[in-house]
């Protein structure tokens, strides 16, 4: 598979004030991420709240400039494409179907807006494209002239998906697209995303907290911790044989609906990391059950091999002697 989007050593920091008299501190929300997004794949990004998933997503969408590093789309720097140029090819679907739709616009005008902004077609043509797209996401024409408040959460998320797809993008970046939805609605939206992917040959970046959903929908998974990708692998390999201790803990935390298994012990310490004051060495070391002596002082380099990538001293550059 060829790389559609490539991120080169992406970094994004924010200046955060710590209250009166304390001055500002730099928060590294994304800290040196390099990854490629391949044509036709579903790349999931997982990790705890605050680890930088949405910040990475907003950079991939061209909505937030990186502090350092660059993003290319088929080899071309996205800065030269501009926001509009990016919007034609990469579109977002966000988590909250309640706040992401303008309450004063009808469903049809919400979906048609990107077409208008880009000056695509006549009003009549835009209406036709909009109705077709609404139909594709499972909203019959009678919804076209309603308002968001008249729709259920799942229906609103369908509108958000129609709005993203009406521009016929190649890549859709979904940031927690189903986490605000009930499970019976979530399954409908996941089925829809999978159908549309096949039909329209889409590439997805899929951010989610829900690892069961990720295992179901993703082809590849990137695991983030404190602004870095700590492991990257094909979905099946990652779930079968996680390499990074944090990935192992994440997978151990998944509560599958199997009675009798009880609540797992993740083996993690309780020291939740402070992104303003990240631990030295391996950022995971205060919680790591497999910590080595050098972990507190030496940052593990990322090892890239045929299985993907992992950043952990347990998986060093040199193959371990047997």
């Amino acid at each position: 598979m060829t790389a559609l989007i490539e991120a080169h050593d992406l970094t994004r920091s924010f200046e955060v004030s710590r209250g009166m008299f304390k001055g500002k501190r730099t928060l590294h929300a994304v800290n040196g991420i390099s990854l490629d997004i391949r044509q036709g794949e579903v790349l999931a990004i997982v990790g705890e709240s605050g680890c930088g998933k949405s910040t990475l997503a907003r950079m991939l969408l061209g909505l937030l400039p990186p502090s350092a590093g660059a993003i290319t789309l088929e080899g071309q720097d996205i800065r030269s494409l501009g926001r509009k140029g990016m919007a034609r090819r990469v579109q977002p679907v966000f988590q909250d179907p309640y706040s992401s739709l303008n309450p004063r616009r009808t469903i049809a005008s919400i979906v048609a807006l990107p077409l208008e902004v880009h000056g695509i077609g006549t009003a009549a043509e835009r209406r036709k494209m909009t109705i077709e797209m609404l139909d594709k996401v499972g909203l019959p024409q009678r919804f076209a002239d309603r308002y968001p408040r008249e729709l259920s959460g799942g229906q609103r998320q369908r509108v958000a998906i129609a709005r993203a797809l009406v521009m016929k993008p190649e890549v859709v970046v979904c940031d927690e697209p189903t986490s605000a939805l009930d499970v019976s609605v979530q399954s409908q939206i996941l089925n829809l995303l999978m159908d549309l992917r096949r039909e329209l040959n889409l590439t997805y970046v899929f951010i989610s907290h829900n690892l069961a959903v990720v295992e179901h929908i993703a082809t590849r998974v990137a695991v983030m911790y404190l602004g870095r990708v700590v492991e990257l692998a094909e979905t099946e390999a990652l779930f079968k044989a996680p390499r990074h201790p944090y990935t192992k803990a994440l997978l151990a935390s998944v509560l599958t609906p199997e009675p009798g298994l009880g609540i797992p012990d993740t083996g993690l310490g309780i020291a939740f990391p402070d992104p303003l004051n990240p631990p030295s060495g391996c950022p995971f070391h205060p919680r790591c059950p497999e910590r080595l002596p050098q972990c507190g002082s030496v940052v593990p380099q990322i090892l890239r091999d045929e299985n993907g990538a992992v950043a952990c001293h347990l998986h060093g550059q040199a193959p371990a002697p047997h």
């Binding site: 979530q186 399954s187 089925n191 999978m194 295992e215 179901h216 779930f239 599958t256």
Partner: peptide, 17 residues
């Protein structure tokens, strides 16, 4: 039937609705 369960639901397959 709606929830994906590794081993029970087929990856990428259709979920119950």
């Amino acid at each position: 039937e709606c929830i994906p369960v590794p081993g029970r639901t087929e990856p990428g397959g259709r979920l119950g609705v």
